[in-house]
Design a protein around this nucleic acid. Structure first.
Lengths: 191, 191
DNA sequence: TACACTAGAGAACGTTCGTTCTCAGCGCAA
DNA sequence: TTGCGCTGAGAACGAACGTTCTCTAGTGTA
């Protein structure tokens, strides 16, 4: 059909909303069907199984993250500002009503030990983010270890914000990032 | 019975092993019964339901964490060394074969949005840890914001180590902590 | 010996869930 | 008009799970 792609993305977005807000195992395919407003038959003909659907949802989430980071860093000029833009992006995200932590961390915690697919998706998402941070750090002339530290700050901010229910962790992580970046580049930090 | 307490802790430890390694919803009460080696009847007479058992398991996990941190910091003399001992403790934990991330983060990701009890348990565990870090930072004469930053590093290290499958995050977090502590206390850092 | 009680093993029950099947309705070609 | 293929709604199926119930065997006691 012509609207094949429209149907798929409609289902993926509906499933993403449900999985993210309630967890994966807690959401039945029936709930996905209701949220997407299509029939079970169509749901299963578009995606062969819940596992397949979940995989596509995680890829969709990954793209959302990438787009968010890209948009946040677009305004920044220097690599340093692009790095700090990550925490500004987190700050805005943490303040959204439906924020409930990182979908990859949540999925990994829920099903990572039973589903190699999910473990792999989480691993790839996180390593992709680390590569992004690494490239910015390299551009800024910082050492590779700084990239690892900045990535850890971002991960920690996400779980802390999710569990505590407050967005404060973003500002704390940003302040720590400034300190770490400045400490790694004393030359550019001084005058 | 006299061995009532022994039965309870036996069940709690068995359930903890299973919940931690496979996730909560993926483990049935039948599996807990097998792992603990008791009858279903006794299991349900000791703990009224899976929810109750899970709650006790989380409290048990919390005590394990507290004990581990306490043991790791016992050898340290100064508040600064006690703070750094946190990351050494993480380093040892990440290297254990059965390491699969923080049980509270995992539980929160799996059931935090459906079960207020679990969300509360995770929140209390994390805020208890933050209070511990805060007290050490205060002892060391550092500002409260440093405590938040160090806690975020610890959280980020746990999720990073779990998802990446390597223990490297502990060393990165420790190095970042050293930088942050030194930057916050230029007086004691100099000399 | 007879009886009351306990405890263990697992069958059974009711529910939920992923997935498939049935069936009625509708458009469309001849 | 008639037959055909497609679609949507939801019933149905088989498995898994949390929880309860049943049955049996054993034990201590009078």
């Amino acid at each position: 059909m012509i609207d094949d792609e429209a149907t798929r993305s409609n289902v993926i977005e509906a499933a993403d909303r449900l999985f993210y807000s309630r967890g994966i195992q807690a959401v039945g395919m029936d709930a996905v069907r209701n949220e997407a407003g299509i029939s079970l038959k169509k749901l299963y003909s578009a995606f062969g199984s819940k596992d397949v659907l979940l995989n596509e949802v995680l890829h969709y989430r990954g793209r959302q993250w990438d787009d968010g980071i890209a948009a946040a860093s677009a305004a920044a000029r220097t690599p340093r500002d692009k790095l700090l833009a990550i925490y500004d992006f987190l700050n805005g995200w943490f303040r959204q009503d439906d924020f409930r932590g990182c979908a990859f961390i949540n999925s990994f915690g829920e099903l990572g030990s039973i589903s190699p697919e999910i473990a792999k998706a989480a691993r790839e998402q996180k390593s992709s983010f680390q590569r992004y941070v690494s490239s910015l750090v390299a551009e800024a002339g910082g050492p590779p270890s700084l990239a690892a530290q900045l990535a850890i700050l971002a991960e920690g901010a996400q779980t802390t914000a999710a569990i505590s229910g407050t967005p404060d962790a973003a500002a704390h992580a940003r302040a720590a990032a400034v300190t770490l970046i400045d400490a790694a580049q004393p030359v550019s930090g001084a005058a």
